[in-house]
Computed example of a mutant assay.
Amino acid sequence: MKIVLFRFISSLVLVAATSIAFAQNKIVVFQSDFGLKDGAVSAMKGVATSVSPHLKLYDLTHEIPAYNIWEAAYRLEQTVPYWPAGTVFVSVIDPGVGTSRKSVVLKTNNGHFVVTPDNGTLTLIAASEGIAAIREINEAVNRRKSSQRSYTFHGRDVYAYTGARLAAGVITFEEVGPLLPNEVVKIPYQAAVLENGKLKGNISVLDVQYGNVWTNISAELLNQLHPQYGDLLQVTFFHNGKKVYQTVAPYSETFGAVPEGKPLSYLNSLMQLSFALNQGNFAAAYHIGSGSEWSVEVTLFAKK
């Protein structure tokens, strides 16, 4: 009986310690559409440092295109899984600042926290990591002092402040504010599926440096078509359901597998199906964009 009781108590201690560690690893990662031309990002970091000088502050990106909630959602999904449990992400792409949209903290099933307006930014990370809990920020408590009359910089006054307090262990997750239903505002998009030998997916983002086109079609899903390197894939691109461009691109292991300027299909660094021109800009050449309204269909056209 004593052994059973000891094991039970030990389990409770372990769970409690793990929960505390999730909220207290002292790491805050910032994302915004502010750019670095002015002092906005520095102001957020100043607020966080004022909460605790022991925090470790990092940037995800501040080059999200202005008001582009979809790209904010994508960059979170691209980045969050590579950070340790307990990391707090402060994501501020907030075209509805000061309106009735909720300010929330999402705790994922993997122990990450995202402090953000609930405006669609959580669409992808909630789907990929799952929702452990969501709390609405109680601004009566979790708001920078003397900022109540400031309505247009919640990134500094609410999100950076709350994220820093959570990461530093000044507050627990429960002290963020009231618990909400495990639902987030979702941006509709084409989920990756295989239907009747045809892959369908979303054009999640462009590799902005090179113009490569990245989809949400995973290697595992692509493998259900059983392509081999050198096989030809027929690819059709759509914007709001309207066909924009169609091509045939060999499935390739490297860019150099095709002549310069020629198209290819490949797996990007996230192991998702993508399209490129060897030493060229695919997106610019064929007027392809990215976001929730862009989609793609892929079939196996011919074996090599």
Score class of each variant (00 low, 15 high):
N142K: 09
T123S: 02
V170F: 06
K26Q: 11
N110K: 10
N182F: 08
T236E: 10
F282S: 02
S91H: 07
T87D: 04
T49H: 10
A164M: 09
A164D: 05
V205P: 00
E297D: 10
D207E: 14
D118V: 13
S252I: 10
R144T: 06
P259H: 09
N281P: 12
Y286C: 02
A133I: 08
N212D: 13
V176M: 03
R149H: 10
V296T: 14
R7D: 13
Y229Q: 09
L5E: 14
Q148L: 13
Q272Y: 15
G98H: 07
A192F: 02
T49M: 09
V213N: 00
Q228I: 12
V105L: 06
E260S: 12
T61M: 09
L179R: 12
R7P: 01
K243I: 14
W294L: 08
A85H: 04
T87Q: 05
I27L: 09
E293Y: 13
T247A: 03
A23G: 08
R7H: 11
G111E: 05
L264N: 02
A285L: 05
V97S: 00
N110T: 15
N196M: 03
D157S: 01
E293L: 13
K37G: 03
G256Q: 14
D33Q: 06
A127G: 11
D33L: 06
G155S: 06
T123P: 02
V4A: 11
I134T: 05
P117T: 14
A285D: 06
A164L: 06
R165Y: 10
V176Y: 00
P117Q: 10
E220I: 12
A167S: 05
V141W: 14
G177R: 01
I171P: 00
G201D: 04
A257Y: 14
I137Q: 01
G39W: 13
A85I: 13
H287L: 14
P181V: 07
S265G: 11
Q209M: 11
A276T: 03
V235D: 03
Q78A: 07
D38M: 05
I131S: 04
Q279N: 14
A167N: 07
P178K: 12
Q224M: 12
G111M: 09
N182A: 11
E253C: 08
W83F: 15
G120R: 03
G86Y: 02
S100K: 07
L5V: 15
V104N: 01
V248R: 11
P53T: 15
V88S: 00
Y161R: 09
R143I: 12
F89W: 09
N109D: 12
K186T: 15
L57I: 15
S19E: 15
I171D: 01
V29A: 06
V15G: 00
I217K: 04
G35K: 11
E139C: 08
F301N: 13
A73L: 04
S128P: 08
V193P: 00
Y286I: 03
G197A: 05
I3G: 00
Y286D: 00
V170H: 06
A285K: 13
A133H: 05
Y266Q: 06
G177V: 04
Y159H: 07
P95E: 04
L180Y: 11
P65W: 13
A73K: 00
S32D: 02
W70K: 03
V13F: 13
T121F: 08
N142E: 12
S269D: 14
V208T: 12
V114K: 02
D207W: 11
Y266E: 05
P250A: 06
G86Q: 03
E136T: 10
I93E: 02
R165C: 08
F89H: 07
